[in-house]
Design a protein around this nucleic acid. Structure first.
Lengths: 139, 139
DNA sequence: TATAATGTCTACTGATTTAGTGAACAAAAT
DNA sequence: ATTTTGTTCACTAAATCAGTAGACATTATA
């Protein structure tokens, strides 16, 4: 059930970029060293976040990454969903990765499904209302 | 985030055994065929559940598996936790697989941790109060 | 008592996913 | 021009997943 390192790195890196929001591009190296993330791996992750439209980048010397959206416009549900494939624990209750159940005859009356639907929905609600700005620690 | 097949098979097999509670041993083959689970794989799973103390078995001809506990005494939290290792999405909020956070200085003030603690706690509550008897479909 | 039908246990395996690495390339500042 | 950065693609070692296979132990029953 533990999130992949990729997902965890993404959340930490985004929180860092939210903290520096408005300060222009931050270099990969600075995030990698500061947040203890392998730099090559972090490059792939930031690239994915850029393709998702969450990050922008500046090329060349004095380049780097920065948040395109405002910190309160990026929620954890979309991050987890993108890197994990889905929020749900069973395909039959997933929004993004739905597949018909391989066991039950009728999903509407399946009690196993009901439970995991409830787990998905409550988890989704928590992640959805958590935006990057609420993750920043201001000392 | 999807549960492994092992975990899903375990839940389905246990629900079946709960349905047949009190009827004596049910053969692996009957469960395998009825619930569409590969028999060899199911053998491993039922063996694990026996070692957990949830199932009992009868050897030899006319043997099989049966629930040792009453269906309302087996909850999904213990099943998921056993087969997935933990309920939590981050080690730093896990009861069973706790490890100190690799990123934050102070877990008590980490906001990322707070969110995933809430996700873990609510998921745990739902799974904990769901027992096998509530999963049986009676037609 | 022989035999057939079951569970037990250990080891093995192919496929997939995870967690990266490496290198050639492109763009921008100086 | 040179240096510093991000971009892209290909590759890989290790771990996990999803089973299989086979020898063995136990029990019912004919």
């Amino acid at each position: 059930m533990i999130l992949s390192k990729k997902t965890r790195y993404a959340i930490v890196a985004l929180t860092r970029l939210a903290k520096e929001y408005g300060k222009g591009p931050i270099q990969i190296k600075e995030i990698a060293v500061g947040e203890k993330i392998p730099q090559n791996f972090l490059e792939n992750i930031l690239l994915e976040l850029r393709k998702m439209g969450i990050l922008g980048s500046k090329l060349g010397k004095a380049g780097g990454y920065f948040l395109l959206k405002k910190p309160d416009e990026v929620n954890l549900a979309e991050i987890v969903r993108h890197f994990e494939g889905t929020i749900a624990l069973m395909y039959c209750v997933s929004e993004k990765a739905y597949q018909p159940c391989e066991f039950c005859r009728d999903e509407a009356s399946c009690n196993i499904r009901k439970v995991f639907k409830e787990v998905r929905d409550t988890s989704y609600d928590i992640l959805k209302r958590t935006t990057l700005d609420s993750l920043i620690i201001r000392d």
